[in-house]
């Protein structure tokens, strides 16, 4: 176990200093309060500034705490907020794809369905909000596992049941699937969770480009797929929707 890292200790001391008492301090105030050389203090402040933890007032040149710290404190995105932001876009997705749309987030070792839009035909359907889906076999689950390291740990550590003959259960095979998902930006489930059912999903990002959920459609394999797999137009519709929700959450255009 190595000892504490001096520059991190100093950075923490600077943040505490800026958080207490007078909130705006010049470089020499910071340096003298902490007994640092001006050059050392300046180097640390500049690094903190690059990370957004500290901001410099343009006119006076004084330093204050940055917005990124506030964001860290409120980093948890409420799933109900996510649903409210996704509502219009997932309605649109269901209409344009003709399939049921779902929004899922990681919960324990599975995908929690936080929003569900019915397939736009007049058939009876039951609302699946609150249901849990498996991480390793569903399109939503694969997207979360590929992009969210916490989900990746869960899927790696838990037993992966063979839900159908097509379910990918081996560790190496699953990693290959997740690599492909990361490379192309979306995941598919071709009868790997339910016989006769296919789905496609893409990641939703927040303003810090953190993956906060996955959005996708699910339907009968005959409708969703053609000879080459998931129909390209459905992949495009799902990715458009994921981008639109991400944009609404403040993620930069991508």
């Amino acid at each position: 176990m190595p000892g504490p890292i001096q520059s991190l200790e100093r950075a923490a001391a600077i943040l505490r200093l800026l958080a207490g008492g007078e909130r705006r301090l010049g470089l020499s105030d910071v340096a003298s309060s902490l007994g640092l050389a001006k050059g050392t203090a300046h180097g640390i402040l500049r690094t903190l500034q690059q990370e957004g933890f500290v901001e410099q007032e343009p006119v006076s040149g004084k330093y204050q705490l940055g917005a990124e710290l506030l964001r860290l404190g409120n980093s948890y995105l409420d799933v109900h907020e996510l649903r409210a932001r996704a509502l219009v876009w997932t309605d649109d997705l269901a209409r344009s794809s003709g399939e049921a749309a779902y929004l899922g987030v990681l919960h324990q070792d599975g995908v929690l369905i936080v929003h569900h839009v019915f397939r736009p035909d007049d058939s009876r359907q039951a609302l699946e909000v609150g249901a849990m889906h498996p991480l390793h076999s569903t399109a939503l689950g694969k997207v979360l596992s590929a992009f969210d390291p916490v989900a990746h740990n869960e899927v790696a550590e838990h037993e992966r049941a063979a839900l159908t003959a097509r379910t990918v259960t081996g560790a190496a095979e699953l990693e290959a699937v997740l690599d492909l998902t990361r490379a192309r930006g979306w995941a598919a489930d071709l009868e790997e969770t339910w016989e006769g059912v296919a789905s496609v999903a893409a990641p939703v990002y927040d303003r810090r480009r953190m993956p906060v959920g996955a959005v996708g459609i699910t339907g009968a394999v005959e409708r969703v797929c053609d000879e080459s797999g998931i129909q390209a137009r459905l992949v495009a519709a799902v990715r458009d929707c994921a981008r639109a929700v991400s944009r609404d959450l403040g993620a930069a255009r991508f």
Binding site: A94, H116, F118, P120, L127
Partner: peptide, 10 residues
């Protein structure tokens, strides 16, 4: 009416 689509039902 034929245009009307159910998105969710509780």
């Amino acid at each position: 009416r034929a245009n009307w689509r159910r998105a969710a039902e509780w």
